[in-house]
Simulated scan of single mutants.
Amino acid sequence: MADVAAKAGVSRALVSIVFRNQPGAGQETRDRVLRVADEIGYRPDNAARLLARGRSRALGVMFTVRQTFHADLIEGIYAEAERHDYDVLLSATTQGRGELKAVEALLSHRCEAMILLGSESTPAALGALGQRIVAVSVGRRMPGSQIDSVHSAEGKGVRQAMDHLVEMGHRRIVHIDGGRGPGSAERRRAYRAAMRRHGLDSEVRVIPGNHTEESGIDAGRLLVTERDGGQPLPTAVLAANDRCAMGLLMAFGRAGVDVPGEVSVIGYDDSHLSHLMPVGLTTVRQDAVLMAEHAVRFAVQRLDNKELEPQEAVIDPKLVVRDTSRPPRTT
């Protein structure tokens, strides 16, 4: 700022007034100061200015780098954060970079609050984090953790998918579960409950998996191997999520299994991948925009009032029927 002031022939205080867009400088002076700043390549450091006031106005977001649904959530978070005049900083978990490193990176950049997408940490660990910084969990229920949470009604989404399949005449319905992934336990319980409710206890089968394409590929290969050994294929599969469903479709395609002619497939999330597949994926939509809006609002509200009771937003999912589900050839 001193360099700008010297070259523009004004005081440093006047340069500060111009950069802060405060009254006290005429238009000609403002134009000259901004022109000089542009010529010498000076840009006001807004981050430093905010930190000097004890604020960063930055929301940190922890996400998993390969989870396509997280990309949809992040897009919504950016839009809502901008409406509240907050910036967004991202930190990813990968196969070699766990949640602890991702969170510590955000803390080191002085984020005022943290939004955790699909965290697999224990409620106790998240509760401890909530004692250090305002935190919001997105994608899983957090009973007793004392932090805000946003998630979809997992059981309702699974019931919609199962009712759709059973009403079409499916009986041999397999579920590839999501392991320890967010929402997986609720989806697994809802699948078993739906099978019992429809009188299909003897057909219940859960194949262990996770929220990756590799999980779907492995499950598909298993089912194809069983078919080649004389065991019939299921007539429908409820996958852990859209990525898992994509892997399953790949495995079935390589083995010549017709989807949905032989096997119907349903995913979960309605991530942008479900629209890009050659065959439109029937899936359960989680409203990424609405979830993102709630997460940002919860964070901003708690920054304004740390005494608020923990808030929980439960978003209704919706089954989206596309091309990968149809009545079975034989019931």
Rank of each mutant, 00 (worst) to 15 (best):
V320P: 05
Y191S: 11
P44K: 11
T225L: 12
G127T: 05
E28C: 07
V10E: 12
S137C: 11
A161W: 06
A295T: 08
V174W: 03
P143R: 08
L200D: 12
A240G: 05
D87W: 06
G179D: 00
L89P: 03
Q311R: 15
A6W: 04
E99K: 06
M195H: 13
F252D: 04
E293K: 13
G127E: 05
E293F: 00
N46W: 13
V265I: 11
V263D: 04
D242Y: 00
Q146P: 03
F69A: 08
V65G: 02
P232H: 05
G181E: 10
H175W: 02
E80V: 11
F19G: 03
V259Q: 01
A219W: 01
L100M: 08
Y78M: 09
D201T: 14
R205Y: 08
E186V: 01
G181P: 00
D163K: 13
D323F: 00
R172S: 15
G230V: 05
H272L: 07
M142N: 06
T29N: 12
V33G: 07
A2R: 14
L117K: 10
A190N: 13
A299T: 03
G26N: 15
G216A: 10
G256N: 07
R172N: 14
I176Q: 04
P310K: 03
Q67H: 14
G199L: 11
T122P: 07
L129H: 04
L50E: 10
R97Y: 07
L117V: 11
M142I: 02
H211L: 12
R180C: 00
A5N: 08
S119I: 07
N305E: 14
L200P: 12
D38H: 14
A124H: 13
R322E: 05
A292N: 05
K101F: 01
S152M: 15
K306S: 15
M168H: 11
E82L: 13
A245F: 01
A48S: 15
V263P: 05
M195V: 13
A288P: 04
D323V: 02
A102S: 14
Y78H: 15
D258L: 07
D287N: 14
L200S: 13
S145H: 06
G179A: 06
P260L: 06
D228N: 15
R285T: 04
V134Q: 03
R66W: 08
T235I: 09
S119K: 10
L100E: 14
D177L: 02
S16P: 10
T330G: 13
L126H: 02
P317S: 07
E112G: 05
R110G: 09
T330L: 12
L73G: 06
G183H: 06
M162Y: 10
L107Q: 14
D72N: 14
A25F: 05
A219S: 08
T282K: 01
G179K: 02
P143G: 01
R140H: 05
V284D: 01
I176Y: 02
H70T: 01
V18L: 11
I266D: 00
E262F: 00
G96I: 01
V36D: 04
G280S: 01
S152N: 14
G230S: 03
H272F: 15
D177M: 03
E39K: 15
K156A: 15
E104Y: 02
T324E: 02
L249T: 01
F69R: 09
I266L: 12
D72G: 08
I115T: 09
R49V: 13
T29G: 05
